[in-house]
């Protein structure tokens, strides 16, 4: 069971500079029916994605938005062969841009 979350990660992400590729998603999930253990695998990413992009709402519905991605690759290591359909780097000039890093 995941405990209550008090921190607003989206507000932290909004500090960063991004050029989001609206045309193409560099990370996509499989359909829940197409992957055995979808829920269990998804919850790993709820815990481990530093950007909090894998979300489960109060009714248990899952959602994912690649827009705030920090391009760390954690979800690829954990679920690259289970519930991710693909994991690529964003296309030319796109994605996060650290000013300090």
């Amino acid at each position: 069971m995941i405990k209550d979350i008090t921190v607003n990660v989206d507000a932290k992400l909004s500090l960063n500079r991004y050029d989001v590729d609206e045309e193409a998603a560099h990370i996509e999930l499989k359909e829940p029916d197409a992957a055995p253990d979808f829920d269990r695998e998804f919850d790993k990413l709820v815990l481990a994605c530093p950007a909090g992009l894998y979300k489960r709402d109060a009714d248990g519905r899952t959602s994912f938005d690649y827009a705030g991605c920090l391009e760390c690759g954690t979800c690829r290591i954990l679920c690259g062969t289970t519930i991710l359909d693909h994991w690529n780097y964003p296309g030319p000039t796109k994605g996060v841009e650290y000013r300090w890093g």
Binding site: I2, I5, T6, V7, V9, N16, A48, C49, P50, L70
Partner: peptide, 29 residues
């Protein structure tokens, strides 16, 4: 989640005073 662990660490009485009042300008992973 890992980002909440970080926030709890940041609020720890040994950690909060040195960074008190600082302006967060970037969040990276």
């Amino acid at each position: 989640p890992v980002y909440q662990m970080f926030e709890d660490f940041k609020q720890h009485p040994a950690v909060a005073p040195p960074v008190k009042g600082g302006k967060v300008v970037e969040y990276s992973g």
